[in-house]
Write a protein that binds this DNA or RNA. Structure first.
Lengths: 341, 341
DNA sequence: TATTAGCACTCTAATGAAGAGAGTGCTAAA
DNA sequence: TTTAGCACTCTCTTCATTAGAGTGCTAATA
């Protein structure tokens, strides 16, 4: 698809104006608002051409134009110039993150909060976790009676906890001994290794190895652990959603854990770290998101731990801004992960 | 406020009908739908009386009646007969809970899910945690370099984790020794005690004791830890919210952690365990919730660990059903806590 | 050849008038 | 005390009309 320079300009301006006003944009509006040195008739011709190309459409014969999915896509991949975040913003954010250098969960939460605040859209962030879970440490604590608490640490900082009932009471000393032994045995091993070694064990050690395998498997799915959401209410301030079943369904997808995981793993997998990916109009994923766009990135240190983060808003979205903020937070988190895990 | 038996009946029926249809209810509608043995004129007189008393109001002169806040309140405190949950429902739910007897977080999540499903409204649940945090166990793990991971177990099963940088590298053996020593020292102590003892310590032990105090303090706030939300999308299927800024603001309050904590601690504090509390029309709490009602309860084992759970829906809500389900889940969780923590 | 002025045309959104319908309150009778 | 009857009020829907926004096309212009 080849556009003339002027067509590119017109498309850019029109998208900008449409994003701003949420109403179809006419030829005159473009000329006046952006003080173009041409008449509205000229713009009309260009608009007609862009419409033929499928970049724009008219809600009805005598209305202005609205960008199509394709129009946005062209804009995002060819015309967008990323928006520099003001220094004041970046430094405040950086500061906030470094103030809580001790807690992965807090980073994640903060990231979600900042993303949604800055993009004025819903945000979602997963905690960083190892691509392949490697055993790091185990702790067994007798809480009372036959009940035991297992704390499992996986390389990269993820912690799993689990309360389990044993068939007979066991003393803390004994538990500690088992934990120490298994800890040595499984050091830096992955699930498969541990699975194999578990078969050589018996009794209590066998059971506990089984729990470890279960937990480590859970940790291996693409979207392990919590997905932190924030700014959901932004969705409902968008004019296209004020009155709509659509919004409810969009929200629903974010609430249903399995749906969400499914969705994220589909999209996040083929994203490279550092690269920001833009999905426009749901783009083949789920019907509920047909009116939405998603700006996502993966972050983390490859081989150590990675996670993903993104912004979900209406298709009519300030892509420049969203992309910048997603990229910024993603590199910030990558740095934090590399330095601290 | 004294109502005749017939007035009570009329109020009950009218509320039922209004909840069902979400539209003002007229005298005829009441008579016909509930096959009353009186004429609509009689009902009209009663409606007029109830309106005078402030239980009902008319959106405009020639419309039917709508319950007022006060009307709902009277209904809930005098007229409601709790709805028995069908055995099939209770047993399925119980079964679900007992299937995952090993994980507090999962209970909480499940509780939120069941609550919102059954009440068709938004639900919120906090994990059970001790009213007064008592130290149980500490673990220190050297992750790499000067970095150390602290895992703190508080009586009742809550686990806090924290990554911290030391000023100089320390060997795992040394860390284990410190952990063991502090573990003995602080066994079953509360924050204040530990605070005092910390002052007697120095060096590494002093620092770590400091972290422990910080974490335990965090755990002492009324709404410690995550608040699990579910079914938020239900809010937007209610007709009173389809087109409304109001809904957005309601959602917002659930998203802003500080607001939410504030709100919950205000209301949850004076609830007794086992008792279900109903807040109608926000009832003095927050403006954003003026159109909403909240059905809450505390659960848990006093002295051991407690949490709270509730259902948030439009004021026009099936109170009977919500109260039943909240009560049921709350006793179920209380049992689980008592048995397992 | 590219641009622009001019204009007829189309469609929407806003406005207002008219009528149907729902529900009330009051009065008088049972 | 209850009820039938009825005038009255207010909303909601429908329909027609109109103003306005924006288009596409043609012919003139640089």
């Amino acid at each position: 698809m080849n556009l003339s320079d002027r067509q590119k300009l017109v498309l850019t301006l029109l998208i900008h104006e449409y994003v701003r006003t949420a109403a179809p944009v006419g030829s005159q509006a473009v000329v006046e608002r952006y003080k173009l040195d041409m008449s509205s008739a000229t713009i009309r011709n260009e608009l007609a051409a862009l419409t033929d190309m499928g970049m724009l459409r008219q809600p009805h014969t005598s209305a202005g134009r609205v960008p199509t999915e394709e129009g946005y896509r062209y804009f995002v991949s060819h015309l967008i110039h990323e928006m520099e975040l003001p220094d004041s913003t970046t430094s405040t954010i950086t500061h906030q993150f470094f103030q809580m250098r001790n807690d992965v969960e807090q980073w994640t939460r903060l990231a979600a909060s900042v993303l949604s605040q800055q993009s004025k859209a819903a945000s979602l962030v997963t905690a960083p976790h190892p691509e392949r879970a490697l055993f790091k440490h185990i702790e067994l604590i007798s809480t009372h009676g036959r009940q035991v608490l297992m704390v499992l640490v996986i390389a990269g900082g993820t912690i799993h906890q689990r309360i389990q009932l044993l068939s007979e009471p066991v003393y803390q000393e004994q538990l500690s001994a088992v934990a120490a032994r298994l800890g040595n045995l499984f050091q830096a091993k992955d699930v498969d290794d541990i699975q194999n070694m578990a078969n050589q064990l018996n009794g209590l050690e066998h059971d506990i190895a089984g729990w470890i395998v279960e937990e480590m498997n859970r940790s291996d799915s693409v979207v392990a652990g919590e997905v932190y959401l924030d700014g959901l209410s932004h969705i409902f301030s968008e004019p296209e959603f004020i009155n709509s079943e659509e919004a409810r369904r969009g929200l629903h997808i974010l609430e249903e854990r399995p749906l969400l995981e499914d969705f994220l793993s589909q999209t996040a997998l083929n994203a490279t770290i550092g690269g920001v990916q833009v999905l426009i109009g749901g783009e083949g994923t789920r019907d509920e998101l047909r009116q939405c766009s998603l700006v996502v990135a993966r972050y983390g240190a490859p081989g150590l731990a990675t996670g993903m983060l993104g912004v979900l808003g209406p298709m009519r979205m300030y892509y420049g801004r969203s992309i910048s903020i997603v990229r910024f937070i993603s590199t910030l988190l990558s740095d934090l992960v590399a330095e601290n895990l």
